[in-house]
């Protein structure tokens, strides 16, 4: 670099006629590097393509096998590979119930915490609390699974509702714990959205005689709505895709039930249990987890696309 700079200075001192060539001189090395860099950027495309191909390929085998029927898959409520009955609803229902419970916990609490941090807390307090939230968000989910099984179910749920009413494995415990797990994510993302709302809007509101609550809830939160919605959708996608908590705490067997105090295996929990055991690659159980994963992939993909769209569509641009 420096070498080059010096050379060019010398050159400019005495310019022999006809030595300056301003035509674009593409160096070979640069071309190679450019290609390598492009490939590194494009590897993500390979990942996505591979995911889609793998999922479709195995799911194709699954739906092609004589026991399986596509309409039955999406319409019946029994999942019993042993008897050849593959209706995804028990797994899907359990996924939905645990996710909804998680959101019912995480969204109000996360948003409340975010409002407190961004609108009420002093800058010093915020400086301490925000990193704590981020650390919390980094706790591995298997740790939360342990927490659900050793504390939430026996101490809280069975303690409050009675041992006979709450099964050891149950969706409520998994959902609540998942809610606690996602709470920091919702709080952190919403706090970012709230603090991005410019001061001038808050001043405008105070200038009209609004209290802090009125300013927060009626001006700042609506102004940050796109970011908050995105946080909620991302949280939903997290909950749907979360595996370890439900694998440990929700139950180890598909069951079609709406009672959150009962055990029922979720889509992710089922994939983990089946693939964790010794299964033959030729068995229908093996291909069935790809079919479940395909449904799961599209559910989360839809949620992620939706969140991106919400952000772009409803974002207020503040300079």
């Amino acid at each position: 670099m420096e070498q080059e700079a010096r050379v060019s200075i010398e050159r400019s001192a005495v310019i022999p006629a006809g030595t300056i060539n301003l035509r674009g001189r593409r160096r070979f090395g640069e071309r190679i590097i450019e290609t390598i860099v492009f490939i590194c950027g494009a590897i993500s495309i390979f990942t996505t393509t591979a995911i889609v191909i793998v999922l479709f390929q195995e799911a194709w085998l699954f739906f092609g096998s004589p026991e399986v029927d596509l309409t039955e898959f999406f319409s019946t409520t029994t999942w019993q590979p042993e008897t050849g009955r593959f209706g995804i609803w028990p797994l899907m229902m359990s996924t939905l119930i645990t996710s909804i419970i998680a959101l019912l916990v995480a969204v109000p609490l996360g948003l409340g915490a975010a409002i407190y941090l961004s609108e009420y807390a002093s800058p010093t307090a915020r400086g301490y609390l925000k990193p704590i939230l981020e650390v919390l968000a980094g706790v591995p989910t298997v740790v939360y699974g342990y927490f659900a099984l050793t504390f939430v179910t026996p101490v809280i749920l069975q303690g409050l509702l009675g041992k006979e009413n709450v099964e050891i494995y149950n969706m409520l415990s998994a959902g609540l714990t998942m809610g606690i797990m996602i709470l920091p994510l919702v709080a952190s993302m919403s706090e970012d959205a709230l603090s991005a709302v410019p001061r001038s809007l808050r001043e405008g509101s105070y200038g009209l005689g609004a209290t802090r609550l009125e300013t927060s809830v009626r001006v700042v939160v609506p102004a940050a709505l796109s970011g908050i919605l995105a946080a909620v959708i991302v949280a939903m996608s997290r909950a749907v895709g979360e595996t370890m908590i439900v694998a440990l705490a929700a139950g180890a067997g598909p069951r079609f039930t709406f009672n959150p105090l009962q055990a029922a295996e979720t889509m992710t929990g089922h994939i983990a249990r089946i693939s964790g055991g010794d299964i033959s690659y030729a068995s229908i159980q093996y291909t069935s987890i790809f079919a479940i994963a395909l449904v799961l992939f599209f559910m989360t993909l839809l949620l992620n696309l939706l969140s991106g769209w919400v952000v772009r569509r409803f974002r207020e641009v503040y300079e």
Binding site: L55, I271, G308
Partner: peptide
């Protein structure tokens, strides 16, 4: 951006197959 939101178990499935 979307890959960052794909559930980790899907990566497991990918790893299993590939």
């Amino acid at each position: 951006n979307n890959l960052a939101g794909v559930p980790s178990i899907i990566y497991g499935i990918l790893g299993l197959a590939v």
